[in-house]
Nucleic acid binder design. Structure first.
Lengths: 334, 334
DNA sequence: GTGAAAGCGCTAACAA
DNA sequence: TTGTTAGCGCTTTCAC
């Protein structure tokens, strides 16, 4: 593998000159520039970014931590982060934590050792401690699709409260009076907010809040199924369910049908995220859409701004979710 | 950010000593080891992997190029690659190429400059040229879910021929006589092989091969829909379709229904991959399952072996696909 | 316009 | 068992 020395020698110039033509800095005559370029090509020279990272203190890499890359929502987030990062000249190193505190900590240390320029967190972060340590180390951090109320950190997310409100309002307007909600994990702010929005909607619709209609589960289809079974086994089962993500919603539909309820005529279901599977479900899922590409773009913009140091105040970008009406919701049965 | 010098000074030893305790090399007394460790912790010292990469000529990073991270099949592949890589101490840098030759080339150059230790390719690689250039540069390369007949390179994939054969045989056994196939792209070996397996199955079943029943499309739902429309508009339309991936299959089902055909009683559909969406489709998709976790594990094992230099001969690992029977296939209508 | 030389933070002989 | 020192491949003053 050719080094800058090889190029310099072959071109009959100093390494400083070669460096300047690589980086297009300093003043180099058109003639030598061309010549050096030719030699670089001839030698198939690839400047070492690890060497330059050592001197420049910039790796042009950002770390992305998320719960699970094979979860479509996060895969789509990752893709949008990747795209924007590439546009801005950054590589992305992805770490799936499975929401495991141990992995989280391990990967975080690893990313620091790799000297990534910044870290984007899409994980629920069990504790704020890890984030805090990054902040203390003055490493640029930004959260996406998650929030930490306690910490001053760049954040971009959708208005989860509004999302929950939209979902529940929609169901209330359809005449449902027993509306349940399935949340992933009440310790994660996004889930909590969605449930709060749901409560607000019930209140506005003059419906009583019933604690037993709030189910908590894991974040996958299985969790949705299991929670739905519990809800439908209630004395006065719900006629509509707001699931905090599309996967959970799919689980609802499956169990609803398995127990002989047709969707939406006997059971209405609303999801959240609007990933590809929402449109594939049968019936297609009415769901609260997150503008995923915008999430990715914004969070990368925030973190690169911070990396470049051109920014002082931390920002919280809140995007507006939108209710997408499809076939899984209908008038309350009577 | 503390450096090895800071630690050495604070601990009253030389940097060589610190280096030895970091890497657990050489012989260090238990006492100084403990002391140095304590100082490292106290200073929140994170050894710079970029500096050590410069001397060790190892970044402990592997690049992963794939068409699209937000495509569930590739997301699952990426997740399995990531997991195995982490187990072995490697980070993964992901690049989505959209099968765009320009991006492919750009990312490849980039990964080389980053001095990744190896590159895993899950892209269809328009031309073998890019792969060739990596091989020439003696950079470890491995293909997953793709093959290059012409190049001597580590490969792990599923037996696509067998997969196509299983799918078409199943349909033939159900009595279908007009069986169509939708392929992504005949320049990609995996698609080609699946079609060949399909042909073989037809032949064994004594069915004639009809060129007009082979449709080529893009790799997403839209492509599946569009191809299905063409097929169903034929004078003698097919009663069964083998789609080369689950997304295409979903498209088939949607168009089949939109044109008034019920699935599977009037139109049978088989997919490929067995991603999560196959089980979510309505009806659930009969599909050829790829053992994705094994693909990821094997390809990482192959490439790390090559990185470690403990391997000479290139290997081609071929895993066996399995037909998963669900609800999208049934007896031919009569 | 160009080059000499001093680092960047670490590893790996080789001495001591 | 520990320390000295010469790189690794590049960037960046600062002379010339």
């Amino acid at each position: 593998m050719a080094t800058i020395y090889d190029v310099a020698k072959e071109a009959g110039v100093s390494i400083a000159t070669v460096s300047k033509v690589i980086n297009e800095t300093g003043r180099i005559s058109e003639q030598t520039r061309k010549h050096v370029r030719a030699v670089m090509k001839e030698l198939d020279y690839q400047p070492s970014l690890v060497a330059s990272a050592l001197t420049k203190k910039r790796t042009n890499t950002i770390g992305l931590m998320l719960p699970d890359l094979s979860n479509l929502f996060f895969a789509e987030v990752a893709r949008s982060v990747e795209d924007r990062a590439h546009e801005k000249g950054y590589n992305v190193v992805i770490c799936s934590t499975d929401n495991d505190a141990g992995k989280e900590e391990k990967y975080l240390a690893w990313l620091r050792q790799k000297r990534v320029d910044g870290i984007v967190l899409a994980t629920g972060m069990q504790s704020d401690k890890s984030v805090k340590s990054l902040l203390d180390a003055r490493l640029p951090v930004a959260l996406v699709a998650r929030e930490s109320q306690r910490l001053a950190v760049d954040t971009v997310r959708v208005d989860d409260f509004l999302g929950g409100y939209l979902a529940a309002s929609h169901l209330a307007q359809l005449g449902h009076e027993r509306i349940a909600v399935i949340a992933e994990n009440l310790r994660v702010s996004s889930s909590r907010e969605r449930v709060e929005g749901y409560k607000k909607a019930l209140e506005e619709a003059g419906l009583p809040f019933d604690e037993s209609l709030v189910a908590v589960s894991s974040f996958d289809i299985e969790g949705g199924k299991e929670a739905t079974r519990r809800l439908l086994a209630l004395d006065r089962p719900p006629t509509a369910i707001f699931a905090c993500n599309d996967l959970l919603a799919i689980g609802c539909i499956q169990v609803g049908r398995a127990t002989g309820r047709s969707v939406p005529s006997q059971l209405s279901v609303v999801g959240f995220d609007n990933t590809l599977i929402a449109s594939l479900a049968e019936p297609p899922l009415t769901t609260v859409a997150q503008p995923i590409p915008d999430l990715g773009r914004h969070v990368v913009d925030l973190i690169t701004q911070e990396i470049d140091g051109g920014k002082q105040a931390k920002q919280r970008v809140v995007l507006v979710p939108e209710l997408v009406l499809r076939g899984s919701t209908g008038p309350a049965p009577r």
